[in-house]
Design a binder for these strands. Structure first.
Lengths: 351, 351
DNA sequence: GTGAAAGCGCTAACAT
DNA sequence: ATGTTAGCGCTTTCAC
């Protein structure tokens, strides 16, 4: 069922039917009612490609997932983020286009998305310091929201982030409260913004409590399981082993646990594995309340929020995104720059 | 830069330029060369929506990720699968459309994808027994490949699966070899095909070795961390606790480990956590070779294979997909039914 | 308030 | 081997 058929059934022109369906004000109430009813009854679905061709808009958001060329990890955290964002898209009748791409190809992909007009906007994942993608996207005029912070000036772009520094500061303080003073930080690659912030939180807490962080207990690598296993083993076998671990990834934590077991040490009291907030709550609340999913749900919220903000930006070209309430442990930054406009766009006054 | 502009630069008709670019045979060698050069120099990118409108094909594959309405888990395994599939799409210049959808809405989404023509085909995730989606997709004529088996007749559709039964049989046998006879099976929901197969593998090994599986040591639920924690704790505190666990999910295994720690028991020798093949190799090979990623990479291979098969099916309407070599622990089934044809399709003879 | 017609960028019959 | 023309299904301008 296409517009032509539908309009001939109704004895109206395609124009009128289109206008009625799209909420243009110049259609009579009566006609609009009839048209909407007929559309529903005939199970009419506008062809998104035809719409896209005509409007320049696609109702599609791109997510570019960079896969490192050196390691084959795909951060499982993406799954939660994507799920959150996907929910929002579904609710708003947007599609999600996922590009899994070798990190070296990222620029090409972004340019391609922009020049092909495959998407109305993109979410940027895993920002690095002074991430070139920000400038790139601004250059090609593709609206975007960054998941994490890319470390350019405030207000230069919009972002949503988990409050990494604060979470790690809290976790560190908590371990110190438990009596630990040799705390190992097993972190992700610190060119990644989130890893840098986690480190800062850790150091802030240590110094705030008069403790000297031991450089040999601070590592920064791609967060694989084996990385956790290897460095934990190394540290635990050294003359002055850590009494607690602060770990940046669930996967890496598994490796650490293995190392601890391997050495015949006891997990729990002797060595606490803390993966930011979630595990922290685990320790705090005892055995009955598993809050491990807390972080996963934060990430999911982050996905929702990112998507929501991006849709906002896209739908209100020329206006900064609106402020909003935050759930979970999230922080946001709103771009003060107006969003790029799509030339062809001429928003109808929604009724 | 669009076709019109490009052709006017070249002083040729749009038709000729289109034909040259798309490899139609009736273009002169010389012209083709010129056209291709000009396209490259002018950085010409065909508009995929316009192409889609004209051909009915979209060069887009849909992945529908069902999210349970009752639990908010998103299987992290999806991330690896998606990464594998995404790679193949990128290589073949296809797009991936991801729909995260409440399981109750799944049928609607599939129908929508079909009727809107948003995608050329779909990958079906998480099949259940006699999954209605198979019939649905056949009804609406959308080409598909199932990740896992949906338990209809052989040859009715194409699928790719990890060899679940075999993996669990091996793991169970291995535990028995180690001297265990009270082995707990902490499985996923057994209406899911993969969970049923894993159970079968477990039972086969147990019976094959003359052991009686204890019903109180076999559980089947949505694979969350807390589920692992809860049932492991229960089992370990019962009069006759298990001496080993066979667990269907990495996440659930984390819960089990916690339970073990909580009870002050020692992991490793006393209780072995086995998550199909990967952990099995871990145990077998000792501490230096972490093969934990084995399963993750199987899943990734499965993603690649699914995508590859689907593209095959789409590109050769009317022909069964070709046989292929398998890597990793995968099994495939090939549909004997011809793939549905897209009416508008008229494949050019690729030169 | 409604309709006719042009056009979005491309492909594919049908000429030549 | 190349061009002409008619769509694909929708939006939007312009006229009534």
């Amino acid at each position: 069922m296409n517009l032509k058929e539908l309009s001939s059934i109704l004895g109206l022109s395609q124009t009128t039917v289109s206008r009625a369906l799209n909420g243009y004000p110049e259609v009579s109430e009566e006609t609009r009612r009839r048209v909407k009813a007929a559309a529903r009854d005939n199970n009419y679905r506008p062809n998104p490609r035809a719409m896209g061709l005509a409007t320049g808009r696609t109702r599609t958001i791109g997510h570019v997932i960079p896969v490192s060329t050196q390691h084959e990890i795909v951060n499982p955290i993406f799954a939660d983020f994507i799920a959150g964002a996907g929910e929002v898209y579904a609710r708003n009748d947007y599609d999600m286009l996922l590009s899994v791409v070798a990190d070296v190809d990222e620029e090409r992909i972004y340019r391609q998305l922009a020049s092909r007009g495959s998407v109305d906007g993109v979410i940027v994942h895993g920002p690095r310091e002074n991430d070139p993608r920000v400038a790139l996207l601004q250059e090609v005029g593709l609206p975007f929201v960054v998941h994490g912070r890319a470390g350019a000036g405030d207000g230069a772009y919009s972002w949503v982030d988990v409050n990494n520094r604060h979470a790690f500061e809290r976790a560190t303080n908590f371990l110190i409260d438990l009596g630990h003073d040799r705390i190992a930080l097993i972190n992700g690659v610190e060119t990644m913004d989130f890893a840098r912030r986690r480190r800062e939180g850790f150091l802030k807490a240590m110094k705030g409590r008069g403790l000297h962080p031991d450089a040999s207990l601070m590592r920064s690598e791609e967060m694989t399981e084996f990385y956790g296993y290897r460095v934990a083993r190394e540290m635990l076998m050294a003359p002055a082993p850590p009494t607690a671990f602060l770990i940046s990834s669930m996967i890496t934590a598994i490796g650490v646990r293995r190392a601890v077991e391997d050495l015949g040490m006891k997990l729990g009291r002797e060595v606490s594995v803390v993966i930011h907030d979630d595990e922290l709550s685990y320790l705090r609340n005892g055995e009955d309340i598993p809050i491990f999913s807390a972080t996963r749900s934060s990430v999911r919220s982050a996905g929702q929020l990112c998507a929501d903000m991006l849709l906002d930006i896209i739908r209100q070209p020329g206006q900064p995104p609106r402020q909003r309430l935050l759930e979970a442990e999230l922080t946001v930054g709103l771009s003060t720059a107006p969003a790029p406009k799509i030339e062809t766009a001429r928003r109808a006054e929604r009724r």
